[in-house]
């Protein structure tokens, strides 16, 4: 066993830097480790680029970082349940890059899988196409969508062992396993920390080999 990955909230905060690109798992904050988001708020780091499915809610999930003025740019597919995002977008205070949800998932996966990009028909003929290369393959047109990378991924598992092998229950899985592959450093928040051997290897959704830090967190 390599050295312990167990990390305190204070040690987690020490990993955060101004200007970082951070992927945050979760879908409308379900599957988002809220306590780790709170720690990012407390750290006060600024000029973040966040990659998340959505904009969270005004007072929950990454919405708290947006409300706190810590986010320079948001890359997301849907921001309709956090009106602050549209406000900051329209006033020019925050840059928002809207990406179709399937394309967002696949761009993150492309980075994690070592691919140079993906070809998709999603977004052809729409604003999403602007500035992108159109590639013809087997007689059909596709948009070339490039990989998305991050300095840090903040993800969750419902429970995990001390190596970081984790399980996401139900729909909390969403972007979490994809982001574990696509960031330089991966921080896993989990609600129940288990001993090695206690997590069924066949049920694992977050793979410990990808996890750098494990923080035991509480639901909030």
């Amino acid at each position: 066993m390599p050295k312990s990955k167990l990390t305190t909230l204070d040690e987690f905060k020490a990993l955060l830097k101004d200007g970082m690109t951070i992927m945050v798992g979760g879908f409308m904050t379900d599957g988002t480790p809220e306590q780790l988001i709170n720690a990012v708020v407390e750290s006060g780091v600024k000029n973040l680029t966040l990659i998340n499915n959505d904009g969270g809610y005004p007072e929950r999930g990454i919405g708290k970082l947006i409300a706190n003025g810590q986010v320079k740019k948001l890359i997301a597919s849907h921001v309709g349940l956090n009106p602050t995002v549209a406000k900051l977008m329209n006033s020019g205070e925050m840059e928002v890059d809207l990406v179709p949800q399937g394309t967002l998932a696949e761009r993150i996966r492309a980075k994690g899988a070592g691919l140079g990009g993906i070809l998709t028909q999603t977004g052809l003929g729409t604003l999403v196409q602007e500035g992108k290369q159109v590639v013809e393959s087997e007689g059909k047109k596709y948009l070339l969508e490039v990989p998305l990378a991050a300095d840090l991924a903040i993800i969750e598992a419902t429970y995990a062992d001390k190596f970081g092998n984790g399980v996401n229950i139900g729909t909390t899985r969403n972007f979490n396993p994809l982001m574990a592959l696509a960031a330089d450093k991966v921080v896993l928040g989990t609600y129940k920390l288990q001993e090695l051997g206690e997590v069924d290897p066949s049920s694992v959704t977050i793979y410990g080999v990808l996890v750098d830090h494990i923080v035991q967190i509480e639901e909030m």
Binding site: R109, G170, T172, F175
Partner: peptide, 26 residues
């Protein structure tokens, strides 16, 4: 929070149901 729809609202899952990540979903 463990079983939600795409609007973030809690839902039930039927006996034939299954869950997966966003890449598989798309």
């Amino acid at each position: 929070r463990n079983f939600t729809n795409a609007g973030g609202t809690s839902v039930t899952i039927l006996p034939h149901g299954a869950c997966f990540d966003s890449a598989f979903s798309f």
